[in-house]
Design a binder for these strands. Structure first.
Length: 161
DNA sequence: CCCTGATTCGC
DNA sequence: GCGAATCAGG
């Protein structure tokens, strides 16, 4: 498999969402976690929530550690958004619940988001037209079934040996 | 041992 | 550019 633009897009989203490299690799398929990590570095996405550890973790030879410029200061756009869901308690006069006016054409915006929507990010988090999946989910669920599998891939066990 | 990301280097 | 090998660490 090659790194198509779409695959890179998925990679960026999942990485921004906090997915581990192995999870991303499993979701993409056809690549190992090493490939994912390598690509992430090549994209300049490395170093997310990294403790100020000294980069003493090298492999093989030991070239002199050059001054390491900090990663590109990317502003957390949607990642930092605290989704405060405001549910209507007993609004009898309410014409219609917010959750029913959602159109799943191309995801939903943050303003349209409610607890009944899949909160899987769609699009570039730093973009203005960033959206969420918006698929209807049970109240309290974070993702729809499809994205839930990506978020929490089942551990492949039963590895008898 | 399982996992994580980081780094180097041959291709 | 790509990713396996290898590393250090939790």
């Amino acid at each position: 498999m090659s790194w198509t633009d779409e695959r890179i897009e998925v990679l960026r989203k999942m990485w921004a969402e906090g997915m581990s490299a192995s999870q991303i690799a499993s979701s993409l398929g056809g690549v190992t976690r090493n490939a994912v990590i390598g690509k992430i570095h090549r994209l300049g996405l490395s170093g997310r929530v990294k403790a100020p550890q000294a980069r003493a973790t090298r492999a093989r030879s030991a070239p002199p550690p050059v001054a390491k410029p900090a990663a590109a200061p990317r502003v957390m756009a949607a990642g930092a958004v605290a989704v405060k869901v405001v549910e209507e308690p007993e609004m009898e006069t309410a014409p219609r619940p917010v959750a029913e006016v959602v159109h799943l054409t191309d995801g939903i915006t943050l303003m349209e988001l409610s607890s009944a929507h899949c909160r899987w990010p769609v699009g570039d988090p730093s973009s203005a037209d960033f959206r969420f999946c918006g698929a209807r989910v049970a109240v309290g669920e974070t993702y729809c079934s499809a994205h839930c599998e990506q978020a929490f891939p089942s551990r492949r066990s039963t590895k008898s040996n």
